[in-house]
Amino acid sequence: MSILNYLIRRIGLALLVILGVMIITFFVSRVLPADPVRLFVGVRASEETVEAKRAEFGLDQPVPVQFLNYAGGILQGDFGISFRTKRPIVDDLKIFVPATLELVILSMVLAIVIGIPVGVIAAANRGGWIDQISRIVTIAGVSIPSFWLALLLQLLFFSTLDWLPLGGRLSREFIISNPIETVTGFYVIDGLVTGNFEAWRNALWHLVLPTFVLATYPISLTARMTRSSMLEVMSETYISAAQAAGLSRREILFKLALKNAIVPTLTVLGLVFAFSITGAILVEIVFSWPGLGTYVTESILSADFPVVMAVTLIVTVIYVAINLFIDILQATLDPRVRLGSQ
């Protein structure tokens, strides 16, 4: 199969998956709850108000029509109205998505920059002390609850040592007197672009703990997966053949085996995103980070289903897009992926 055919097929599948995801979120938000309208207007509202609102939201129509309205709205960027804030959800998302992505992207970068080399080195020293230590540390890394780690670090670096801020994206004095102007929504970029270096430094300072906590799981996971795919590759005959041809261990490890092992390891990056974004939900609460996680948790507490569904949907679409990108990357790296794509 040519790469173009592979691409088209893969994109088609991704669209199918997004359709399925929309069906599920629709089902969960409109069909599972007993009466979403009652939730919106409150318990004390009269029957007439309920029916009026039901008609306004189109919830009195047959379920398939409701779904078409829902899907049509989403395609136009309309995620509905929040029960809690009564604002269009899409306006809230514009504020919260960049805040969360700032954390998630940093955590993914750390996972790649630290996780992959650690995995390769552990595999190269299989059974040695570096391998043993990295095994324990990385397993601990995937075992520690992020919200608890966040709590511990707050206790240490804020309560005890007072080195780092407790939470938030920016200290209060900056928010009041010298806020970072929004250009992209990413403070790390906006602070530099607008030349507001003091606030920028303050923003970086606030990023340290949340990023570290969020990156713990992804780094450990990447290191473990890299190690095991490296070991698998190292047991292949073509590695023996390369040795027989006189290639050195370093060349085999870093030039040959890494390219073979990177293909399965890339799959991990999709997972790393998934774990970062869901980890962010928990971590943001602890650090009062004004992102999707805080937004969604507040919505959960007030049973604000449309918001929860909208966030689920948007995060999932990003996830599907990332996986699509990874698959295409794998297909360009490994000619066999294109062939055995079914």
């Binding site: 005959t237 073509y238 053949a241 027989a244 041809a245 040959l256 390219k259 073979n260 490994d334």
Partner: peptide, 16 residues
């Protein structure tokens, strides 16, 4: 000294 193996499809690296 050179060496060749039983299963040539396994002895050639698939991604190069």
């Amino acid at each position: 000294i050179g060496m060749i193996f039983q299963d040539p499809s396994a002895a050639l690296n698939p991604v190069f």
